[in-house]
Amino acid sequence: MPAAKANSNTQTSDDQAPSTPLVEFSKEQDLSAYQTMLTIRRFEEKAGQMYGMGLIGGFCHLYIGQEAVVVGMQMALKKGDQVITGYRDHGHMIACEMDPKGVMAELTGRAHGYSKGKGGSMHMFSVEKGFYGGHGIVGAQVPLGTGLAFANRYRGNDNVTLAYFGDGAANQGQVYESFNMAELWKLPVVYVIENTRYAMGTSSTRSSAETNLSRRGISFKIPGEQVDGMDVRAVKAAGDKAVAWCRAGKGPFILEMLTYRYRGHSMSDPAKYRTREEVDKVRTTHDPIDMARARILEKKFATEEDLKKIDAGVRDLINEAAEFATHDPEPDPSELFTEIYR
């Protein structure tokens, strides 16, 4: 598990659940995952650029480096399943097939953004696509996601909720209140912990007594696994297992994704808490997109030419989104007082 080795802060221990064996992707799966991961990467790079140009304001948290997590997990879901996450949410929305135009227009605070310009980067939703936000308070999405799962159980359907949070949020009390109720009531929720090793600027060794976050459910009897979050195939295999566990009515499951964010916590973070070498090492040896690309070529699922076409298509899509988000009008002042109450 290359990322686990790269992650020097995380010790694997003997009593954790054995990691799920990786299953090779079909050609279609590999190409589709590659394209979605690349879409997220290009989207985020564009968002970073537009932030620099002053087109995006406030906080903007980029997902570059973590793409395999949402793309692999999304492949394990079916229609009617729900996704909820924190403020680093652009990747999740694109993985949920939300329209990059609507997401980018929300980032620029325009009328046709997903929240009509009233939410911004951290607060977007699409009930239609099963995406329940986009929440700005660290950890708050965990009880909320547990509540979405509660609604599935209440309605007697077999849908599952993915509640994403980071290694920082994993230290919030409300996470454990949620774990307790989820296991007590056997709620169908997968807690996906995106362990990027740093909660803003604090490394997990400096903030967490137990850095193996897959073990954080032990006292609630929730099974957990560490997953190579840089390999989309490993994510999908673990996601399949966890989602099946939930769908079967066995209660919650914890997946700790060992991943890495290349950029700072937000646009204004110089990331002085880690070395350039550390970042470069992950980028050059474990980049989820580069690894997928190499694999596709090696297995002859596509030629360099084919991939260039995909790359160009993604670039066009993102450029269109940026164009749209730059020229879409700002919300009408009359929107100020709408949608406070229904």
Binding site: N152, S178, M181
Partner: peptide
Amino acid sequence: DKRVIDTPITEHGFAGLGTGAALAGL
């Protein structure tokens, strides 16, 4: 007991869980 539910003593957690259920339409 499906509709009248005793919770643990975890106000933050169950207020959030209830809010999530409401966002899902309950």
